[in-house]
């Protein structure tokens, strides 16, 4: 994989203005410039409390670009996408409906037809509901560190209070979700997403992840003939554990589950070289199906 060696990387960043649940939002997104017109779009959803730069390695991967057009966007409040006007007088809380509308509005705005959607962590949770509700609209969905439910492991009240540094505590908490084998450079790049996020953003995302997305009673309704579902989880992820993913996969006929060795909760950013070894067969499967 060619990463970090281009003087001018084959990534283009732009903004698109979209209406999300009645709120005008200016969304920042990046896409690979390596792909041809016939490439299958892959819309990437970042983890809670971080941004689309987590996918930068996949966007410059020539082998992936041969068949796929990689696109990653910052959710409102994240990265270079601003929070909505009036954010200063509200507490950010992501819900399933708002998240679904955000992804749907973005895909419509950029004109991506029948895309693959690949989400990590909370993005992985969302693709399960996307496949269930709107499976016919997607060529496939890929859930990284994904399950239809998982057990919480800390009190989110720590994440946004004036007497505790938000960036420091968010990054220190999630640092343990990165596999110990992951290279230091990419470990700390992954953590920067949390160190640099806005106040309360991670906590607001976790409202969706913890309180508004228990899909155990409905995930089995996914028709994987209509929308193939791939679930890939790192063995060191103790937030969405391999057992959480396996249990979810077992409840969805046709779901394809892979447990990734020596990877954690952020496979695409914490160890991109190792991760692509797991992702390429999935993408090849998608490219040759339908």
């Amino acid at each position: 994989m060619e990463t970090g060696i281009h003087k001018l990387e084959p990534i283009m960043g732009r903004y698109v203005n979209v209406d999300i649940s009645g709120q005008q939002s200016r969304i920042y997104f990046e896409e690979s410039t390596l792909s041809g017109d016939k490439a299958i779009p892959v819309v990437c959803l970042h983890t809670a409390g971080s941004d689309s730069s987590q996918f930068r390695h996949l966007l410059v991967d020539k082998e992936i670009a041969a068949n796929f057009r990689m696109i990653a966007f910052d959710m409102p409040w994240h990265g270079k996408s601003l929070p909505p006007v009036g954010y200063q007088d509200q507490e950010y809380r992501l819900t399933t409906e708002l998240y679904l509308d955000t992804v749907d509005s973005f895909i419509a705005a950029i004109g991506a037809k029948n895309p693959v959607v690949m989400g990590c962590s909370m993005g992985g949770r969302l693709v399960i509901e996307l496949a269930r509700r709107y499976g016919k609209n997607f060529r496939a969905v890929i859930g990284l560190e994904a399950s239809d439910y998982q057990t919480p492991w800390y009190d989110t009240e720590w994440l946004n209070r004036p007497d505790v540094h938000g960036g420091e505590i968010c990054s220190a908490l999630i640092s343990g979700l990165i596999a110990p084998q992951s290279p230091d450079e990419f470990r700390w790049e992954t953590l920067w997403g949390y160190l640099s996020a806005g106040p309360g953003v991670f906590k607001g995302d976790l409202h969706f992840y913890r309180q508004d997305s228990d899909f155990r009673d409905r995930s089995s309704e996914i028709d994987t003939e209509l929308c193939p579902l791939y679930l890939l989880t790192g063995e060191y992820d103790f937030s969405c554990t391999p057992d959480d993913t396996k249990r979810t996969g077992q409840s969805i006929p046709g779901a394809k589950v892979t447990i990734m060795k020596k990877l954690g909760h952020f496979p695409m950013s914490e160890n991109p070289e190792l991760f692509r070894g797991y992702l390429l067969p999935v993408l090849a499967d998608i490219a040759t199906s339908q």
Binding site: W153, A179, Y236, F238
Partner: peptide, 17 residues
């Protein structure tokens, strides 16, 4: 351990299990 087994690699992982 330099590369602890999954579950023992982080104090919060240890608490969770």
């Amino acid at each position: 351990m330099k590369f602890p087994p999954s579950g023992w690699h982080d104090i919060f992982a240890m608490v969770k299990i």
